[in-house]
Simulated scan of single mutants.
Amino acid sequence: MSILLDCILLIDDDEPTNFLNKMTLEQAGCSRQVHVAQSGLEALAFLQDTTIRPDLIFLDINMPAMDGWEFLERYRNLPPARKADIVLIMLTTSLNPDDEKRTRAIPEVAGFENKPLSQEQLDFLLKKYFSES
C-alpha cells in the first residue's frame, strides 16, 4: 500500500486491543506515527496540545469515565483547524444496531467498523478516504 499518513490516533481503554490494532497499523506501514490514547480525556488533550494533527482517528464507544459518545460531544467543540480533514472511524465490539445507527447520524464520524482492526479493513479504509483516485 502506497498511502502514508502522518499520524493515526487510536482511542481505546483496552490494552490488548490497542496492541493488536497498533501492530496491524505498523505492519501495514501506512503511518509515520501511531499514537494511542487510553481514554477520551487523554485523546482530547493530545488533540488540543500537540502540533501533530492525526489524519485518522479510530474511536471505541465503550470506555470508562468518558465513552466515545461523550468524546464526540467534546470533539465537536475543538477549533475547526484542530479537526479539519480528520477521518474519524468508530472501531468497536458493539453489536447493538442502535450504536451503528446513532454513529451514522453524527457528521464527524465517517464510518463504523468492528474491532480488532484487520488488514483488509485498513486497506479498504485507506483506499476509501485517502486514495487520490
Rank of each mutant, 00 (worst) to 15 (best):
A110N: 10
E100P: 00
A84R: 15
D99T: 09
F71L: 09
R74V: 06
N114F: 14
A105C: 14
L91W: 01
F112P: 03
I52K: 05
A105P: 01
T51L: 15
T93D: 10
D99K: 02
E108G: 00
E100K: 13
K83R: 15
D99Q: 06
D85T: 05
T50S: 15
P107N: 10
A84H: 08
T103M: 04
P79F: 03
P107I: 13
L59R: 04
I57H: 00
E108Q: 15
A65P: 02
E100H: 00
N77P: 02
I89G: 03
T51D: 14
A84E: 13
N96A: 11
T93N: 14
Y75V: 11
I52M: 11
F112L: 05
A84Q: 15
L91D: 03
D67G: 08
E113W: 05
E100A: 12
G68Y: 02
N77W: 04
P80N: 07
I61P: 02
N62I: 07
P64K: 10
M63R: 07
N114C: 13
D85C: 02
S94A: 11
M90T: 10
T50R: 15
E108P: 01
G111Q: 05
T92I: 09
L95N: 15
T103E: 07
T93E: 07
E113D: 09
A65Y: 12
A65L: 14
P64G: 13
P97Q: 13
T51H: 08
F112D: 08
T103G: 10
P79R: 12
I61W: 01
N114K: 15
T92R: 01
I86M: 08
K101W: 14
R102N: 14
A65M: 14
N77E: 13
N62R: 13
I89F: 04
F58G: 05
D55P: 04
D55V: 07
L88D: 04
D55W: 00
M66H: 06
T92A: 02
I86K: 00
F58P: 07
R74F: 01
I89R: 00
P54C: 12
R104T: 11
M90K: 04
K115M: 12
E70R: 09
N62W: 04
T92S: 06
K115F: 08
G68P: 06
R74L: 13
R82W: 06
E108F: 00
G68N: 10
E113C: 10
S94N: 13
I106W: 00
V109T: 11
R53W: 03
M63V: 12
F112T: 06
G68V: 06
S94T: 12
K115L: 05
L88C: 12
M90R: 09
T50Y: 09
G111V: 03
R53C: 09
F71M: 04
L95T: 13
M66F: 03
G68M: 06
P64Y: 04
D98F: 05
N96M: 11
F112V: 05
D99W: 00
